[in-house]
């Protein structure tokens, strides 16, 4: 193989690498410039996307916030749950029952579904928090600083 051909091949390899790097950089820039967020869309869809409406909209949101605060205590420094506040908030978030005439059996099934929902939400929020802990913990600080929004931290 001639020296000229070797040089040409190296040049082609360099050019290919440059094209690849440019492409990757462009895609990263495009992603960072998008007005997206750190939500793990597909994970949420897989975890709770096909769940029935076992709670009201308000109850789901309250449960989300409780799961978030529980996840914050694992990801961020300086946050601890107040166990009594947390227990009361869980009760508040799951009261009243969706149907007051539910049988004991139905109530057990419903409670299991609620606990599974809380656990799934907690798990995905843990994943989001550990993926981008700075932003996750900054958001937790915003919650703690907002006196109009209840929290269950100490």
């Amino acid at each position: 193989m001639s020296a000229h051909f070797k040089g040409l091949r190296a040049l082609i390899c360099l050019a290919a690498a440059a094209v690849l790097i440019t492409g990757v950089t462009a895609s990263v820039l495009a992603e960072s410039q998008a007005d997206d967020d750190n939500r793990l869309d597909e994970a949420w869809k897989d975890a709770i996307g096909d769940q029935e409406n076992i709670l009201t909209e308000k109850q789901f949101a309250m449960l989300n916030n409780l799961a978030f605060q529980a996840a914050v205590t694992k990801v961020c420094e300086g946050f601890d749950l107040d166990q009594s506040k947390f227990a009361k908030a869980i009760t508040d978030a799951t009261t009243p029952l969706p149907n007051p005439d539910m049988s004991e059996e139905d109530i057990k099934v419903w409670e299991t579904a609620v606990i599974m929902r809380l656990g799934a939400t907690y798990g995905v929020l843990l994943a989001e928090g550990n993926t981008r802990p700075e932003k996750f913990c900054a958001s937790a600080k915003d919650l703690k600083a907002d006196k109009d929004v209840p929290n269950v931290w100490q």
């Binding site: 007005d35 967020d37 750190n38 932003k135 900054a138 958001s139 915003d142």
Partner: peptide, 11 residues
């Protein structure tokens, strides 16, 4: 946007 879960606005 470009950030994490926001408990304040969820509430």
């Amino acid at each position: 946007a470009n950030g994490a879960y926001n408990a304040n606005w969820t509430y």
